[in-house]
């Protein structure tokens, strides 16, 4: 197999290198890629969508349909991870460990029924538990709100600077994952439960697809944000700009929820009990 691999790789690579001879030179402003379709975006994008960041304009408006399905891909990944890994309900034979906060004594409980939450002086700990680092926990607690604030900025400011729904959504998701890593998965899940992941994920995509569907109901084509002008009482160009913002929010929601959903399924192997 290794030998076959080397042969395939060498032949394919050689053929690909051979074809680079006819490529347009790298970073040539006169190459077809830079002269056919893209100048329209650069020169007209601002006038047609009122979004100075052309990448955002193309992403969420000119090629907004791609982006809808791109968000759907993330949603798909979330659903697939859940579908494959989630073990519904907790097995009755799991062994749980509780630690007495004041003394540090660990109690191992078999056949766990309804222990969690009922013991104020005890805290549930992971099987492979090491004492939590106070500095890390505190630093993360302080940082996470700022990370989330920055994420909101990235989503909202996608029109004017690099950023947008995906980037902001990823940062939002990462902030929660940071909480899960610095504390444990259960802490993160207490803040935002599994059902919330699942529903937020579909709601995010629904916001996007729904915006498109509203345009359709108003008699325009799917995702033609110009239709929103009637509802928002602005001119069609500004309506496009607002439409982009709405779908970016949807994307942000979907990406955030999907990332946390994937993380909690993959890291806990689907039992949502103990994570990394």
């Amino acid at each position: 197999m290794k030998f076959l691999g080397i042969i395939v790789v060498v032949i394919t690579g050689a053929l690909l290198v051979y074809t680079t001879g006819d490529f347009p030179s790298w970073s040539d402003p006169a190459s077809p890629a830079s002269t056919h379709v893209s100048p329209h975006y650069i020169e007209k994008g601002m006038h047609e969508t009122a979004a100075p960041n052309i990448v955002t304009a193309v992403l969420a408006d000119y090629r907004g349909f791609d982006t809808l399905f791109e968000t759907t891909v993330v949603f798909c990944a979330g659903v697939v991870c859940f579908f494959l890994l989630r073990i519904p309900g907790r097995s009755p034979f799991t062994e749980c460990q509780y630690r007495h906060k004041a003394t540090g004594i660990t109690v191992r409980v078999k056949h766990d029924r309804k222990m969690s939450g009922s013991f104020g002086e005890f805290e549930r700990i992971d099987t492979l538990w090491t004492p939590h680092d106070l500095i890390i926990q505190t630093a993360c607690r302080i940082l996470i709100p700022f990370i989330q604030l920055f994420a909101l900025y990235v989503i909202a400011h996608g029109h004017h600077s690099p950023g947008g729904g995906f980037q902001g959504g990823v940062i939002l998701g990462a902030s929660i994952i940071l909480l899960a890593i610095s504390h444990d998965l259960r802490t993160a899940l207490d803040r935002l439960g599994e059902k919330a992941h699942a529903i937020l994920c579909s709601v995010g995509v629904l916001v996007y697809a729904g915006t498109g569907a509203v345009c359709m109901v108003l008699g325009f084509n799917f995702l033609d944000y110009g239709a929103l002008a009637r509802i928002l009482h602005v001119d069609p160009v500004m309506a496009r700009s607002h439409g982009i913002l709405v779908v970016e929010v949807g994307v942000g929601l979907a990406v955030m929820a999907a990332l946390i959903w994937i993380y909690s399924n993959v890291s806990s192997r689907g039992n949502y009990d103990e994570g990394l």
Binding site: S38, I42, V55, V74, C76, L85, N265, V266, R269
Partner: peptide, 28 residues
């Protein structure tokens, strides 16, 4: 040229999604 960047944003997202699914399958 903004277009390749837009396309690659999509491709990155697809790559992440594929990675997530592949890891889930690897666990399985």
């Amino acid at each position: 040229n903004p277009l390749p960047h837009v396309l690659m944003l999509t491709a990155i997202v697809v790559a992440v999604a594929t990675l997530g699914v592949a890891l889930a399958l690897a666990i399985k």
